[in-house]
Amino acid sequence: MTKTKYISKSMTRKERWNLFWERNRKSEGYLLKKKLGRFVYCVCRAFLIFGLCFLILQPLASKLSISLMEEQDLYDRTVINIPRHFSVSAYQIAWDMMDGIKTFWTSFYVSFLVAAAQVVSCTLVGYGFARFKFPLKNFWFACVILLIIVPPQTIITPLYLYFQDFDILGIIGLFNNGSGLNLLGSLTPYLMMCLGCAGFKGGLYIYMLRQHFRNEPKELEEAAYVDGCGRLRTFLQILLPGATPIITSCFLFSFVWQWTDAYYSRVFFARAYGWTLVTNRLTSLVDRLDAEYKAIYGQSFQIATAFGQQILSTATLMTLIPLILIYVVAQKNFVESLSQTGIKG
């Protein structure tokens, strides 16, 4: 009986080649067919994956290349992706147009507060749903689902009016000559909504956190209870440290989505005096640019579209840079936390 030979690293290339053909002959051509099929499949898959990655990255890449061009390159038909005259002046203009530091700082501050408020309330609620039995639990959970599916447009009008004349059961009115407080134009209304889990995508965070706490072993808490630890302390000292990754990613999600959110920003912050966020600036950027140039060169002046587009691309890129940084650092965190959500539906 001959010993079966396998391909090993110590063989020379020629030996391996011979061995492969020998095995192929023994299997009556099956091995070759299989190998070829596998190879073709891998190539096709590589093309497909590359193409789809390109699809997603291309807009970013083109924004980057446009933002680095000088204005004359924009009109040059021979310049396609790589700028002939490098320049960072577009960044300077975009930065000035967006009010640079002030806007970014305001946006950061607002997003941070919103994310913190959302995470605190949603963690509590998520834990409550995961671990305690109480009457009407299913009803309240249905409310969470409702929070997810009600489009903000449906409730924004009453909310707007409500915050214009804010009052809880007429209590404030007693001290304020029968009228409520006008809270619009400050951060308070939206922060209150976030603390009440009714902020942007609040329901989703509750769902994610509940799923996480449900998967934690029950023994942890039981041991704590046996040792005489109260419910709140068990939660704070035993479960909270273990939930740091998911809480972090909820925080980051909330931060990122608030950063790019245009809707709530427009309704709650845009008209108020100081609260100009990145997104507000971004949507009105080209019009502002136009106005600026009109002020300098007179009313008949109109900025070139390509130039406007370039500044807009640059500004968008600048807005995205913090998010991309966050994503690169916390990528694993994001993906894993979402994976947990899926399990057990």
């Binding site: 609620v125 109480f134 639990k137 309240w140 909310l159 009440g196």
Partner: peptide
């Protein structure tokens, strides 16, 4: 049950004030 309600109280308040009422 009490602890559960305390934990989800932010949701209850938020739901009633900022979702149910406006809806």
């Amino acid at each position: 049950a009490i602890a559960g309600y305390l934990f989800i109280s932010p949701l209850i308040i938020g739901f009633l004030l900022f979702l149910a009422y406006p809806l």
